[in-house]
């Protein structure tokens, strides 16, 4: 999932300072799971904004709403009535959701979270990066452990000289991804794969070729495909 963390309160309060009526919008997907922007966090942030206005002696009205998903226009359409009543929006979705809301309504939309990475839960309250969306998955040859996301240097043929006792030189808390890969290949009896050198990676599918887009012709309407290729 996409992970996020709430922005410092003062930054959010700074964004909305000029406005008197705002809408705080959450998302029921990834940011709910990582406890950054779900319904509960919408309530907490809205409450904090109200407490701040009480302290500042300023009147501010805060509306709350949480969408099933903020990165789909169909769901963001549901904000039309509320968006028409407010001066600005604070979105607690990831960057994708924030931009979708901003693209649909002609009012300022501010981020309430910092979107961090694509990660998995290690235990309750702890998420770790697992994927960088390189567009050419190599988990099939690395024992299911990603050297792009989990090696500090994203090297294709590791480990490097900074691997000491299974840890990365950047921190004793960071596992050496290539040590993990080797251990996993040994566990699977697939050590031979380690001998195969991986060629220099083509980073264009990873974003090096500009903003990426997926077009599924079997799903997208022909009108949209035609416009897109025009």
């Amino acid at each position: 999932m996409i992970t996020a963390e709430q922005k410092p309160l003062q930054e959010i309060l700074g964004y909305i300072a000029p406005y008197e009526k705002i809408l705080v919008v959450g998302c029921n997907e990834c940011v709910t799971v990582c406890a950054a922007g779900g319904r509960k966090e919408v309530g907490l942030l809205s409450s904090a904004i109200r407490l701040n206005s009480a302290k500042a002696g300023k009147k501010i009205e805060v509306l709350e709403h949480t969408l099933e998903r903020q990165c789909d226009p169909e769901y963001v359409d549901q904000l039309a009535e509320l968006a028409g009543q407010v001066d600005a929006v604070v979105s607690l979705a990831c960057g994708c959701g924030i931009q979708t809301v901003a693209s649909q309504y002609p009012i300022p939309v501010f981020p309430g979270v910092n979107t961090k990475f694509m990660g998995a839960s290690e235990s309750q309250g702890i998420w770790a990066e697992r994927c960088m969306g390189c567009g050419d998955c190599m988990l099939g040859i690395t024992g299911g452990i990603c050297p792009i996301a989990r090696c500090s240097k994203s090297i294709m043929n590791g480990p490097c000289g900074g691997s000491v006792n299974g840890k990365c030189e950047i921190s004793p808390d960071v596992d050496c991804a290539w040590q993990l890969i080797w251990d996993r290949l040994v566990e699977l009896g697939l050590q031979d794969r380690y001998e195969e050198l991986v060629a220099a990676k083509d980073w264009r599918p990873a974003g090096g070729g500009g903003p990426r887009k997926i077009i599924r012709e079997d799903l997208a309407s022909s009108k949209i495909i035609t416009e897109d290729n025009a």
Binding site: L44, S47, A48, R50, L51
Partner: peptide, 11 residues
């Protein structure tokens, strides 16, 4: 007792 209950009481 969630954080929101404490905040709502204060609010």
């Amino acid at each position: 007792v969630d954080a929101i209950h404490l905040m709502k009481a204060l609010e």
